[in-house]
Computed example of a mutant assay.
Amino acid sequence: MPTPDTDEDIEFRSPHWPRVVIFGAATFAVLLIGATIGMLLAPTTTEQPQTTPGAGSVEVGFAQDMSVHHLQAVTMANWAREHSTDPAIAQLGFDIGSTQTEQVGRMKGWLMLWQQSEQPLGEYMTWMTQAGGHHAMSSSGGSAAMPGMATTAELSRLRSLSGKELDVYFLQLMLRHHQGGTDMAQYAYDHASVGAVRTLAKSILDSQGPEMVQMRQLLRERGAEPLPYP
């Protein structure tokens, strides 16, 4: 004879778990998959040099700094996805968050293989030291350590907004963020020696280019302009 359901059984099977718990588990799964892909790709590419990339190399610096850069984008994208009432903004947030979370997983997988720290141990952007490299700093009163990154004050403002104001400010911050990210990706594509790193950099350029076009269009539709970008 079946045992009657207890209150704990009913609560465990409830379809109304907090979305943050479900999304957190999904994000962890995507990161794990991305890291696995990164570990599988790194040793198999025919362009892999004989020596493992070391601290200060383009490959390690790109993986460390771009992971930090991407994770801020994921934070902003997830906020917009959860709080915007505009389906176009929510979908854009979902797309950016999903894509960049998987890419972070790949980069962290490489760093694990290369026995390097997941976080940069010194200043950001020191790997961009060859011709064309640059280190953009914020002029808005905060410390955006990499090109396009939002300051603490800007993130706080984003969280304080709602409705159309939230949508516009998210688009402005994310567009500027993408501009900085594509600068970094282009440099890595031009200078990295590891084939898998160049492939990821190209993937970032291919995905963020159309997204920037889309964000500019969404801003125009809402009567807004992009933020200045150095």
Rank of each mutant, 00 (worst) to 15 (best):
D190G: 08
P49C: 01
A35W: 07
L41E: 13
A42V: 01
L227N: 12
L40P: 02
W79P: 00
R216V: 12
G141I: 07
L121S: 12
H83M: 06
H191C: 06
S203N: 15
S67N: 08
K108D: 09
L41R: 15
L219D: 09
A73S: 15
A150W: 13
M149D: 06
R176H: 09
R222N: 10
Q214K: 15
R19A: 11
T182N: 05
E102I: 10
L200D: 11
S139D: 14
T151L: 00
R159M: 13
Y189E: 12
R19I: 12
T36C: 03
T46I: 11
L155Y: 14
S57G: 06
E82T: 11
A144E: 14
A224L: 09
G223I: 00
P2I: 14
T129N: 15
H70N: 12
L155N: 14
P120N: 05
G195H: 08
E102D: 12
P4Y: 01
M1N: 08
E47Y: 06
D65G: 04
G195E: 00
V194F: 04
P43D: 05
G163Q: 10
A144H: 09
F12G: 07
Q217T: 14
F23I: 10
K202F: 08
D167G: 02
E165N: 08
M184G: 04
V21D: 12
M39P: 04
I96R: 02
A201S: 10
M137H: 15
H177Q: 07
P18N: 13
L171W: 07
A25R: 12
P49N: 04
G148M: 05
A73N: 07
V20G: 07
R106N: 04
E221Y: 00
S84F: 01
D167C: 04
H191V: 09
A136I: 15
V197T: 10
P18K: 06
